[in-house]
Design a protein around this nucleic acid. Structure first.
Lengths: 213, 213
DNA sequence: CGGCATCCGTGACGATACTG
DNA sequence: CAGTATCGTCACGGATGCCG
């Protein structure tokens, strides 16, 4: 048997960016991080939300990420016993990398190819750097055609989550086209509200701040 | 003959980060961007400052980047006629991605392997997000053991450059160990100056601001 | 000599099948 | 559900050759 699956060759450069790419530059790794930024996930969930990744590559990446301290595997207690993968603080620290990538790549969403897969929570990252920063931890639920997700602004831990939130401070209802323009920065929430393309629900101060600044 | 070198398979996801990784997720691409962020470079310079990249991969990446509008090739007028590669504004827009990667990867520089290549301007990216933002375009020259580079803060165009600056507003002299700690954020300029590990030269307002805030 | 193109060996990747 | 096993293909790294 081969002693150990040889990791991809390092760049061998004394450079912070090159070191980062040594760790997360492999294909699929940053997209796995994107999924786990939404909270703990099971292997099968990761596999269904990352269409195109093969099972062995997903397993290898998760093993690498565990060995590098980016993620941990944890076995949930019964009932519903399952093993879930979760980001460590070091893994959560990749959030700025993914938001920077999302901000740069947002214009490319203008072209929507028929082969593209879509998940609602994929819209979360571009939004994270566009919404105003609250003074206290705030949860915003976002409802688009493709589904529901929620953003956790101004707090630690996971930055967003799939599905509805328990007690959101505000709720945004919009279509995915508007959501994309929001993430691209060509539209802000206030403009979308006055144009009738965004509904802001909720009566807290953050909802009011979103409606009109 | 094959009609065209098949690009790496797209992730085919309607997600801004995935789109970005479709464009710059290939091996070496972001490191080529890192080099070009320092200004126009010739093919041979890129090849020597990216040890390990093979000639054909470098040529293919540059062609891809040109096709995607990230870089352009330009022929310098004689004398010294040479073709140089230069980032487009879209390519320069990747600076936040690289600074985020550098910030995340900076702790990994604690281990300095004997196989690591070093270039002075590789220290520029971690520094860019740590130095105080000036109110007007400012050039800071940095002198470390391995060489000299300069940072262009608060302006457009390339973010840094290899070699000395023409008329720097301030000049930092330090060793690479201190430079790393500066980029990692465990040390700021003022602390380094009082500890005698950083010399700040220059008499402009920004040099004064660096010495003590 | 700079700027690639070609060839080749290795290994990473993608798809499918299969197992505890 | 959570992977492992197998296999074909292609991308990558290294060396060399070509051509202005």
């Amino acid at each position: 048997m081969p002693p150990r699956q040889q990791r991809r060759r390092s760049y061998d450069q004394y450079c912070a960016s090159a070191r980062a790419l040594d760790a997360v530059g492999d294909r699929w790794t940053l997209l796995i991080v994107r999924e786990l930024l939404g909270g703990p996930r099971r292997y099968t969930d990761l596999h269904t939300d990352l269409p195109g990744v093969s099972t062995d590559v997903l397993a290898a990446r998760l093993k690498d990420m565990e060995a590098q301290g980016l993620a941990t595997r944890r076995r949930l207690p019964p009932p519903g016993a399952a093993t879930v993968y979760e980001l460590t603080p070091r893994g959560v620290g990749l959030l700025p990398v993914l938001t920077a990538l999302a901000e740069w790549g947002a214009p490319d969403l203008a072209e929507r190819r028929p082969t593209d897969a879509v998940r609602a929570h994929w819209f979360a990252l571009p939004l994270l750097c566009r919404l105003p920063a609250p003074e206290i931890p705030t949860v915003v639920e976002v409802v688009v055609d493709e589904g529901v997700f929620h953003l956790r602004l101004g707090g630690g831990g996971p930055a967003y989550g799939d599905g509805p939130a328990e007690e959101p401070d505000a709720r945004l209802v919009l279509d995915s086209y508007t959501c994309r323009e929001l993430g691209e920065g060509v539209l802000n929430v206030e403009q979308g509200v006055t144009a009738g393309r965004i509904k802001v629900l909720g009566d807290g101060p953050f909802a009011a701040a979103l409606r009109g600044s």
